[in-house]
Design a protein around this nucleic acid. Structure first.
Lengths: 340, 340
DNA sequence: GACTGGCACTCGCTACAGACGAGTGCCAGA
DNA sequence: TCTGGCACTCGTCTGTAGCGAGTGCCAGTC
């Protein structure tokens, strides 16, 4: 059973009004606020159909209608177009992001900006190590049996890790090790390094063999097994906006999910490209987030994503506005990172 | 008007019961649960005095008594002794912290551990840069006019910053710069570096002068002006424990404060020594945290603090237990860091 | 003088009843 | 196909009443 244009207009009006007022919307209010050109009774009939199809529901018999997750989905897919950002917003983005001094700074500014503009919880993934390549590796002796390994990636990420050597090694050997790993690994993508690292061990001079072996283990562990994905979070206080109506009364599950890096990565870190994803309510695979919606996208120079970013809010959110903001911020960040 | 022993016992009983049940405690319940050896009527008289002195209050006329911030203060100062940790807890701490591979790892594990043990929000400051000394400085060329400056501190902290050079410089000059800054700065405390950095510029060979000047600005900015204090946070979901009774109904101000690094640093980062601080309710200078209590301490090898850590929770918290846990965790972390 | 039992009182909480009103579903008619 | 009208539902609000936890006070006891 298809929905004609007017029914869709009614759904759109319901979503817009509900998002704005956070109160169930009735047929009378609807015809008053939107130029639908028909009477409340007609709207009621349309509502009955929409309800039957699962796009809206009534919290209780004598109340107005509220969009369901499915209703929001239809709204997002077919009834809304992405709002262009206001010049003020564009300026805000630029102003906020220029002057960032390093990657950390970029990420932190971005996440705050996103939280502020959308008035929701923002999540930004650091550029994925898997998609970075090695710019430089540094070995700093801490003691004769300990080295600090510092890897600098082309995305600006800097990762360190302590290396415990099996036997003490002299300073010259550290220099040799440093030279060797840099010669072999600089410039290669992290995902491609495992065979190279393997080769390093095999080709190492006998007296370096032991140290190189441990070093290679650490390298593989740290850089490739991608425990080291990172995220930044901001705007959790925005969860309390809108009383306790959103998130069906309890912030608990949401806060718990937000603290699990793994969960958040799954949510926003899977972006391979810079297309925007919208997950509404129970479309979400993470149980704790069944009462929330997530708008996310990849960011990066061009169309390939270095990492993901997004926002999380109530299913009752301003989707067009949020989508526009998320995209715009991602684009700016992508450009910013491309400059380095 | 002094409080005799029994009145103090009554106060202690009220605090303990209220913390346990989260409900105003009446005179009858009190004599039943604690061996006070007197009748409810007597307890009521004592309560009247305690209320007059501002240690407890009645939420409403026909309700039991609840400790005031002042009451908790008295309880903490005079009526409680720090609970020794259970062996299980000690083991949990050790198990959780061994195997940390670098500073980030230590900090993250610590903050999670603390949140888990105290069931509250935990905050851990990274070892303060101001109290670290330079172990190594690395300069990595990004382009002919850009360097990545990486500083490795003896506390394990690694900070990076992009340096935009006024004019392109050749690779050999970068090597020279690296040698120079390392010769001068390695081993010195960050707080002592400004004159050394100054000297570096003055003593630099003419062709390095320009680069060294920008480099020194960045060095001073990044390392000394201590914007770069960092903190880690965990357990925000614990704020929702105990319904909405704690924090007078709104998590908003708390969540807002937790997101402000500056605020958090002020709260736990001022520790100069490893003594424990307890801030109860409105003793707190931060308005947003007037409804919360904070238990914090410095951690570090020996008695000097490298940084601070602590937990934040409702004023109605298990102070003896929390204090014990915070101290224990701080001690373990201190030892762990001393090993590096 | 300190403690106790008793008693009147306060007041928040719950339950219940009734009025109100927003909003619906349905139907007959245009 | 749309519309006006109407009966109906049901959540919310208001007011009342009863309950019970807990208090404050007082007179009596040790």
């Amino acid at each position: 059973m298809g929905l004609d244009d007017r029914k869709l207009a009614v759904l759109r009006a319901i979503v817009e009004d509900y998002v704005a007022t956070q109160e169930p919307v009735g047929s009378r209010a609807l015809v008053e606020r939107h130029q639908l050109g028909v009477s409340p009774a007609t709207v009621r009939n349309d509502m009955a159909v929409l309800e039957e199809e699962g796009y809206i529901r009534q919290p209780h018999t004598s109340a107005g209608r509220v969009p369901t997750d499915r209703g929001y989905r239809l709204f997002v897919d077919r009834l809304s177009r992405v709002k262009p950002l206001s010049p003020a917003e564009r300026r805000a983005i630029e102003r906020f992001l220029v002057g960032a001094v390093d990657l950390d700074d970029v990420v932190h500014r971005t996440v705050r900006l996103l939280a502020q503009l959308t008035r929701q919880v923002a999540v930004v993934q650091y550029p994925s190590l898997a998609r970075s390549s090695v710019r430089h590796l540094e070995l700093v002796p801490i003691s004769t049996t300990r080295l600090m390994l510092v890897m600098i990636a082309d995305t600006g990420r800097v990762e360190q890790r302590l290396v415990e050597l099996p036997t003490p090694i002299p300073a010259e050997d550290v220099t040799d090790l440093r030279r060797l790993v840099n010669e072999k690994l600089v410039g290669s993508r992290l995902s491609e390094t495992p065979p190279l690292v393997q080769a390093l061990v095999e080709e190492a001079a006998p007296h370096l063999r032991g140290a190189m072996t441990t070093l290679s283990t650490v390298l593989l562990e740290t850089l490739v097994e991608r425990h080291e994905e990172r995220i930044a979070l901001a705007g959790t206080a925005n969860l309390t906006r809108g009383g306790l109506l959103d998130f069906q009364g309890s912030l608990r599950p949401i806060l718990e999910a937000l603290e699990e890096e793994v969960v958040m990565l799954k949510l926003i870190g899977e972006a391979e490209s810079t297309t925007t994803r919208v997950l509404i309510g129970d479309e979400n695979e993470i149980d704790n987030l069944r009462a929330a919606s997530v708008v996310s996208t990849g960011y990066g120079p061009g169309a390939t994503a270095l990492g993901g970013l997004g926002v999380l809010g109530p299913t009752r959110m301003d989707y067009p506005g949020t989508i526009a903001t998320v995209r715009a911020v991602a684009r700016y960040v992508g450009e910013l990172l491309a400059q380095n």
